[in-house]
Design a protein around this nucleic acid. Sequence first.
DNA 1: AAGAACTCCTGTTGGC
DNA 2: TGCCAACAGGAGTTCT
Length: 294
Amino acid sequence: MPELPEVETVRRGLEPVLSGRRIARLEQRRADLRFPLPDAFAKRVAGRRIQALTRRAKYLVAEFEGGQTLIMHLGMSGRFTISPSVGSGKMPGDFTHGTGADPKHDHVIFHTEDGTTVTYNDPRRFGFMVMAPTESIDQHPLIRNLGPEPLGNALNAGYLAARAQGRKTDLKAFLMDQRNVAGLGNIYVCEALHQARLSPKRAARCLARTNGLPTDRAERLVTAIREVLSAAIDAGGSSLRDYRQADGALGYFQHAFRVYGREDEPCTKPGCRGTVRRIVQSGRSTFFCSGCQR
DNA sequence: AAGAACTCCTGTTGGC
DNA sequence: TGCCAACAGGAGTTCT
């Protein structure tokens, strides 16, 4: 579900209440999400301070004092919601305790030392939380094989060209694969390909070097990925069904979608008279304009 | 080794 | 209204 912009938005929302704060108590309401929750989870977290809350790809990463790091993934329907401490200035009744979602799916609740609670709610339970030693976190199986962060310098046309060399898989699947680029999902792959005017059906090897130079296609794609993700983060992510920011607010980038969810609507690209189509690739919906995406 | 299919789980939506 | 199938933002595992 949440892709990089949504996870980054959640991280920014949680950082002020979690980073540098001690977890007084952790409430665990079931044994597992997608995978079992960490052994002795509550005991390992209680009384420990979160030294940093970062993000890698679609993972939220909480580094605890004492050498352990919690890796969290929101799956398709996971959300974190902050409830302020009593007496924080809010009027009683201003804030519904919990997530605003069905409380029967409140699975993990972090109580910070100052009384704030952070609740993880996840109806589909595709999310997960894993604890691992901080010192070797980069070698963790969930982290080890991730491709570069798309907003960092490591993603560039030369990298993409090399990575796509000889790959017959289509561009859609290539970009969805977290080993190639980390953090993209169905929505932003569709949007980035549209902006780059590339067909999702094209073989990934079209990005590879020709005459020793990265292709114009690879350049356009890198630019498009960066612009789409940056704009989405600025908008607080995209809210379709479940996604909310940590303060409960909706994201609003969904209003800026050019192709996603716009089947049969006209292409918005200036000068393009095409219509947005929906096809299925690797079992998932792809939205694109066959007029301007080649 | 790459690529495709299958799997986990619940909720919503659209067709009949 | 009820029922059922299809679908939803992900990704690890298991096949071919």
